[in-house]
């Protein structure tokens, strides 16, 4: 089976700054890929190129065997995306907003109602269904963003910091949701919480200064830490891989 996400040679240059310098990434269905890196490493830029929001300076992206650059609408139909900060229209109620997303995704009548209901069910939004989004707490807003991304049950799900700013209970809920969807989807989530990678991901990719510095299982990542370190082992590996002095030694 063709990889659900196939990014090849992705590069992005902003003026004279090379934000992303050649990233190759393939993700198959059933994989949950944790995308790690320090602030400014190029995580969001890479995700924005994969989702078709930014055009890459070089390289290409295929989503479910559809080329993002030549057939963007078809590629985007296969994909659910939660942008950083989960932006939603504050003046709409949850019901109106999800109905709007459903309509743009091409669902009508009872099918749309069924899709909205299923997404609301999965993200526990029943209690606020008829409330304007601007009146919701951060946790609820994040869940509205998630509901929007999974409304069409996409084979590819891309989430930029899905648990950022949530309390521990809300984080747990989101991770549970990701685990239940993981079986038949290719999921990419960016985070800078390392425990999240151990909790939900089957694969970890660390990028630093626009290039991939690690790609493997969370266990392999853990194994890179010296045996003498007992606590915060992942933090140690992360620091070793992404701090500047390692860069100069390589």
């Amino acid at each position: 089976m063709e990889a659900a996400i196939a990014a090849q040679g992705l590069r992005k240059r902003f003026g004279s700054f090379d934000a992303v310098q050649g990233i190759d990434l393939t993700v198959k269905r059933g994989e949950v890929l944790g995308f790690l890196g320090p602030h400014g490493a190029g995580k969001s830029t890479t995700m924005r190129m994969i989702t078709g929001f930014l055009a890459p300076t070089a390289g290409g992206v295929r989503i479910c065997d559809t080329d993002m650059l030549s057939e963007p609408l078809k590629a985007k139909a296969h994909m659910g995306y939660l942008p950083e900060g989960a932006p939603c229209y504050p003046d709409m109620t949850v019901a109106e907003f999800l109905g709007f997303i459903g309509a743009v995704r091409g669902f009508d009548g009872p099918e749309r109602a069924r899709r909205v209901e299923a997404a609301v069910e999965r993200t526990n939004l029943h209690g606020v269904f008829h409330q304007p989004i601007e009146t919701l707490s951060k946790g609820f807003k994040r869940r509205v963003g998630l509901a929007q991304a999974i409304l069409h049950d996409p084979p590819v799900l891309i989430m930029d910091e899905p648990t950022d700013g949530l309390d521990p209970n809300q984080k747990h809920q989101v991770r549970e949701l990701i685990r239940t969807m993981a079986k038949n989807k290719a999921i990419v989530l960016s985070t800078h919480i390392l425990e999240e990678v151990e909790a939900v991901c089957t694969r970890a990719v660390i990028i630093n200064r626009g290039t991939i510095v690690f790609d493997g299982t969370p266990q392999a990542l853990d194994a890179k830490a010296p045996a003498s370190i007992a606590r915060n082992r992942l933090d140690h590996v992360f620091r070793t891989l992404t701090t500047a002095d390692t860069e100069s030694r390589r």
């Binding site: 924005r48 989702t51 078709g52 929001f53 609408l73 078809k74 985007k76 139909a77 994909m79 995306y81 942008p83 950083e84 900060g85 932006p87 939603c88 229209y89 504050p90 997303i101 743009v104 995704r105 091409g106 929007q148």
Partner: peptide, 14 residues
């Protein structure tokens, strides 16, 4: 301003 441009331009609509 609210960042929804990233949401709508990644929906399958031109």
């Amino acid at each position: 301003r609210i960042g929804t441009i990233e949401l709508v331009t990644t929906l399958p609509i031109s």
